[in-house]
Deep mutational scan, measured.
Amino acid sequence: SLNIVTVTLNMERHHFLGISIVGQSNDRGDGGIYIGSIMKGGAVAADGRIEPGDMLLQVNDVNFENMSNDDAVRVLREIVSQTGPISLTVAKC
């Protein structure tokens, strides 16, 4: 069973999320979106629970499971540009 973790980040303390995301597209185009790298000083690094290779399932109320990489990057950028905490739900691989 997948270990699902939801992390809520206070964006007032850390001014950027600090992750890159990578799409693992397979033949069907539904390989999922994964955490690529984590930048020091960002909210994700400070929290420490999300790691490279984790699968990104949801951000706030947006489901990322069947999203293309381009869409995921765009949607994540829109969410980060808003104010307030950000909740990331990942599956630990």
Rank of each mutant, 00 (worst) to 15 (best):
T6D: 06
G84T: 12
R74S: 11
Q82S: 09
G36S: 15
I4L: 07
L17Q: 01
V7L: 05
V90A: 02
E12P: 10
E12C: 08
M11W: 05
N60F: 00
N69P: 14
S81M: 10
L2M: 11
S68Q: 09
T6W: 03
P85V: 11
E12M: 11
N66V: 06
V5Y: 05
M55L: 11
S81W: 09
V22P: 07
A72P: 05
G29N: 14
V59C: 09
S68M: 10
T89R: 11
S81P: 13
V5R: 06
T83D: 15
V59R: 00
L56V: 08
L9I: 11
L17P: 04
L76T: 08
N3Q: 02
A91F: 05
D61I: 00
N10D: 14
M11V: 13
N66L: 12
V90F: 03
E78K: 04
M67P: 01
R13K: 14
P85W: 02
V80F: 05
N69R: 12
V73D: 15
G31N: 10
S68L: 09
E78Q: 05
N63L: 09
V73N: 15
Q58K: 14
D27N: 11
M11D: 06
L88W: 01
H14R: 02
N3V: 03
C93Y: 15
M67D: 01
L2C: 11
V7A: 06
S68K: 06
L17W: 00
N66Q: 14
V80G: 15
S87T: 06
G32C: 04
L57Y: 06
T89M: 05
G42C: 08
V59P: 01
D70R: 09
D30I: 06
T8S: 10
V7S: 04
E65H: 12
S87V: 07
G31Q: 04
I21V: 13
S1L: 05
D61Y: 04
L88I: 07
A91R: 05
S81G: 15
L76C: 07
M67F: 09
A91Y: 04
G32D: 05
T89H: 12
G23P: 15
N3M: 03
T89I: 09
V59F: 02
G31A: 08
E78N: 05
D54M: 09
D54P: 00
T89F: 14
G41V: 09
Q58D: 11
I86M: 07
L2A: 04
V75L: 10
K92N: 06
A72N: 02
I35T: 13
N63H: 09
T8V: 07
T8E: 11
V80D: 11
V62S: 09
S87C: 10
R77L: 02
I50T: 08
V90R: 02
K92L: 02
N66P: 07
V90H: 01
L76Q: 01
V75F: 08
P85T: 14
G48V: 15
L2F: 13
D71M: 06
G32A: 11
D54I: 02
G29K: 15
D70N: 11
V62K: 11
V59N: 02
V80W: 15
E65S: 10
L57V: 10
R77W: 05
E78P: 05
Q58N: 14
V80E: 11
N3C: 02
V22Q: 14
I4R: 04
M67W: 05
L9E: 01
K92Q: 07
G32P: 07
V62G: 02
C93Q: 14
V22R: 13
T83I: 10
R74G: 12
D54E: 01
V5L: 05
V73T: 13
M11T: 06
S1E: 05
S37Y: 11
R74A: 10
V59H: 00
V59Q: 00
L17A: 04
V80A: 14
N3G: 08
G31Y: 14
V5G: 02
L88K: 00
N66R: 12
V7D: 00
S87R: 12
G18T: 01
I86F: 03
T83W: 02
V75A: 09
V62P: 00
D54N: 06
R74D: 11
G32E: 04
C93H: 14
D71I: 09
G18Y: 00
T8C: 08
L17V: 05
G29D: 15
I4V: 03
L17C: 03
S81C: 08
G31F: 14
M55C: 11
L2H: 11
D61V: 02
G23I: 02
V5T: 10
G84K: 05
T6L: 03
T89C: 15
I86A: 02
D54S: 01
N69C: 07
V44F: 04
L56E: 00
V73M: 10
R74L: 12
N63W: 03
N69L: 06
S68E: 08
V75K: 13
L56P: 01
L57P: 00
R13H: 10
D54G: 01
N63P: 08
E65Q: 05
I86C: 15
R74N: 13
D30H: 08
G36D: 11
I4M: 11
G53S: 06
G84A: 07
N63G: 12
T83K: 12
H15Y: 01
L57C: 11
N60Y: 01
I33V: 09
V62H: 11
N3I: 03
V59A: 05
N69F: 04
V44L: 04
V75R: 08
L2S: 12
L2Y: 15
A91K: 15
D70L: 04
N66Y: 11
N66H: 13
L76N: 01
V90P: 00
G29Y: 11
N63E: 11
A91V: 13
S87A: 11
Q58V: 13
A91P: 00
D71T: 14
D54C: 07
N60E: 05
E78T: 11
D54L: 01
P85A: 13
E12H: 05
T8M: 10
I86V: 07
V90Y: 01
V59K: 00
T8D: 06
M67Y: 12
V5A: 09
S87F: 07
G23T: 05
E78M: 03
V7C: 11
V7M: 08
C93V: 03
N63M: 07
I86H: 09
L56W: 00
V73W: 11
R77C: 03
T6F: 07
I4E: 10
E65R: 09
L17E: 03
I86Y: 05
V62A: 09
A91D: 02
T6C: 09
H15R: 04
N66D: 10
E12D: 08
I86D: 01
Q58A: 12
L9F: 10
R13L: 12
N63Q: 14
G23K: 10
A91Q: 06
T6M: 12
S81Y: 10
R77G: 11
D61E: 10
G23L: 01
